[in-house]
Design a protein around this nucleic acid. Structure first.
Lengths: 230, 230
DNA sequence: CCAAAAGTGTTTCCCGTACACCCATGC
DNA sequence: GCATGGGTGTACGGGAAACACTTTTGG
């Protein structure tokens, strides 16, 4: 019994980056199609012979020349029958983080422009991409508190104040510097870097590194990362 | 530019039920197709003009004559190119809970048999359904601790001991009866029922109800449900 | 020596944990 | 009156929260 079905499968990626105390999202302006000149998430249709993961990575590469630090499936949007006016589409959305070191995308073949937008200065978006983005934003906030993904948004070597600021900014909360430091320290998953302190104004700050191996090891042993503040 | 793509979209549902101190999963034995006589999750292909949610609910109705208490999207499985030997399929899996009152499915049109299996006495499953089921099981365990979904597995009026047992069984942990009672009580989301106590052996136990409205209200106010035990 | 940002310790309080005895019923 | 399961209180300890001064540098 052959199955008749005319639904197209797409993938979309919500890529977050963090720079200058601001959370940013990567958007592209489409060159072709119905939604020409509209800003949209990175994404496209899945090929018959590639996995969903391969599809997202390909789109990231093609549309923004980007390699991400963290990637996970977010949600599948398929309850809007008229999402794309051309035909029925369901979209598997992925959630991605890039290290602020590689936060300079270059527009590539498919898109004529790829650009970072501050999360609270978004342009109008194509399709239901705003809803997708909001869901991703929620997920980011939630995960930040129970998984060490903040490090995937920072350079390999970072200052404690940067980490702290990242948490404050994304969670929109005040955090006590001393308690935060104490807590993070107690996990034993970050270590001082030998990188010489930067000299600007005030007392120079030390650089730190996230010890991913150590974290994985602790994780296996049942350790639970958790940051919660009033 | 027309898109050529030959991928079929299916939905699958992992339905959990709880009865006699055991966690159960609903499986169906397929009447037709390549996988004839194999046990599989409830599921099927999405129609062009129905949403994903409608598709799951339809399948639940058609294959098991079932209305569920809780339903949420779990994950989309599309990284196995050879999942279904007939053609490329991606499957959007849903996670469902049924109240033990309606835990008597009747086989309907599509399937010749629908049956509950204890979670640790599963038959061999079709496709990658075992992997899906395991992911759902994980999710259930996790959610139980931070969302009041346990109540969706119990009758509307239940005993404290039933609730406690549900937690013990699913989380595979010993729980101190007094501390558990105290914690749940402190939330203020369950209330005594007027239903007269059942008389069996020992002191009769009171019935309780989950006050969903109260929970929603508290939730809006920032209340966080959380059950954690050593 | 002043300004600017980084670093650090102590006390308090609440919540999670451990733990055991009495109560209501049926037989 | 005894067996069975249901219901409840208290004491302790650890971790989260609140809180402010000292240190290092540049100008």
């Amino acid at each position: 019994m052959p199955i008749k079905q005319n639904i197209k499968v797409a993938v979309d990626a919500i890529v977050f980056g963090y720079a200058h105390d601001t959370l940013n999202v990567l958007l592209i302006k489409q060159k072709f199609g119905e939604m020409k000149n509209q800003w949209a998430l990175v994404g496209g249709f899945v090929k018959d012979n590639e996995t969903l993961l391969q599809a997202v990575n390909r789109e990231l590469e093609e549309e923004a020349g980007l390699k991400v630090n963290y990637l996970e499936q977010l949600y599948t949007f398929g309850d809007e029958l008229q999402r794309d006016p051309r035909f029925r589409v369901i979209s598997v959305a992925y959630f991605a983080l890039v290290n602020s070191q590689n936060l300079k995308p270059v527009a590539d073949t498919d898109a004529d422009e790829a650009k970072w937008f501050a999360i609270n200065e978004l342009p109008p978006l194509a399709f239901d991409h705003l809803a997708i983005l909001q869901k991703a934003h929620q997920r980011l906030k939630a995960k930040l508190t129970y998984q060490p993904i903040g490090f995937d948004l920072l350079p390999d070597e970072f200052l404690f104040s940067e980490l702290e600021n990242l948490y404050c900014t994304i969670l929109e909360k005040e955090i006590d510097r001393r308690n935060f430091h104490k807590k993070i320290d107690s996990f034993g998953i970050i270590e001082e870097s030998e990188k010489p302190a930067l000299k600007k104004v005030g007392r120079p700050a030390k650089f730190y590194r996230f010890n991913k191996q150590k974290y994985s090891q602790l994780y296996e042993e049942g350790f639970v990362f958790e940051i919660k503040f009033a």
